[in-house]
Write a protein that binds this DNA or RNA. Structure first.
Lengths: 210, 210
DNA sequence: GGGAATATTCCC
DNA sequence: GGGAATATTCCC
């Protein structure tokens, strides 16, 4: 329904309705205050609201309690939903934005994302969600990095242990995922074979009956 | 002719051919050296080359000597030309980019822009055009780089670097594999649905015929 | 996940 | 024209 075509005619000093807000920019370092929510958040929220009336819910929807949302079909979502709201169709760019705004992935099994202030029926809370962005602090980069490195130096070996552990687990995971893919592919083949065989036999049955 | 539709199907970790270049990023503070030209420059150049064979020349073209270019019809240009090369159709965004790359407006009477290194037949010079961007850093570049080099000295840290590297790649792989699985699962569902629907219709056909 | 480069928008 | 915020891409 809501077909927001990405490219609208907008000549000259175009002003989209995206993030137009009267006052100044972010109140740096203030208490959680109502602001004009980032376009990304509004669009993502709207996209989920659209689901309430349509059957996009098969592609993306709130979880049951409305405390997080799930992309059920990344392929469909990327190809059809994203370009209606954003200037791209890359799932990874969408995820990049979610990370920027501090969403957390809830499950390794499905594309479920959560943010405290991003919940069904709470459009008014979106203004409290901010980009996490290391302010280009007063101190030059090299001071920061050196002090950070000093901190970790004592636990260097521990870190290595942890990384090796994680590495091992990731490789195991990879193997499992690849096996899952193999299984999927096999099942697909079987289904296709089944379908084609079934069509053959049914057709001949029908022919015999005619 | 060249119809680069803005949104191409590009699921997952999409890699556009935009600015993919082997090596590292900009050589900060080096002599004018050949680099991979910015996507913006390539697109703008190509758009003008396109004009050589079509009659876009009524909308946008090189000047007579090929030392600058003129947007003859901003309206047409914004509505039809821009979205074929960029993710927008705002003339002002185009101009913002021109300014970023140091183009100068040549006349107050028409939209003519010029850059020393942007001339007809000189695609090879585009790599010498750089963004002008005030570095946020108060400190000179050489301080930064030397301190960075100090950081990675012990073999311990090197090991850790390698492990972190591998770790990141593994996580990326995992993402890709998970997306593959999602697609597989989706296809399975569709095949199953197809099979079951087909069985239903065929059965009823047979029943009718008996 | 996130740093950093480039692109797009918004505003002065 | 350009500073600065947000968006998108690319890469680790």
């Amino acid at each position: 329904m809501v077909d927001k075509s990405v490219v609208e005619l907008n000549l000259g000093l175009g002003k989209n309705n995206d993030n137009v807000v009267g006052g100044g920019h972010a109140h740096a370092g203030q208490s959680p205050r109502q602001r004009c929510p980032a376009p990304f958040l509004l669009k993502t929220y709207d996209l989920l609201e659209e689901g309430e009336s349509e059957d996009i819910t098969k592609i993306v929807s709130w979880n049951e309690e409305g405390t997080s949302f799930v992309v059920w079909s990344p392929a469909e979502f990327s190809e059809h939903t994203l370009p209606r709201y954003f200037k791209h169709n890359n799932f990874s760019s969408f995820i990049r934005q979610l990370n920027t705004y501090g969403f957390k992935k809830m499950s390794s099994k499905r594309w479920e994302f959560k943010h405290e202030k991003f919940q069904r029926g709470c459009r008014h809370m979106l203004g409290e969600i901010t980009r996490k962005k290391c302010e280009p602090s007063v101190f030059p980069a090299y001071l920061k990095s050196s002090s950070e490195e000093n901190a970790t130096s004592s636990t260097e070996e521990n870190n290595e242990q942890v990384l090796m552990e994680e590495n091992k687990n990731l490789k195991k995971e990879r193997l499992e995922l690849q096996m899952q893919i193999d299984e999927c592919k096999e099942l697909e083949m079987k289904l296709l074979a089944c379908l084609s065989q079934f069509m053959d036999t049914q057709q001949s049955k029908i022919r015999r009956l005619c």
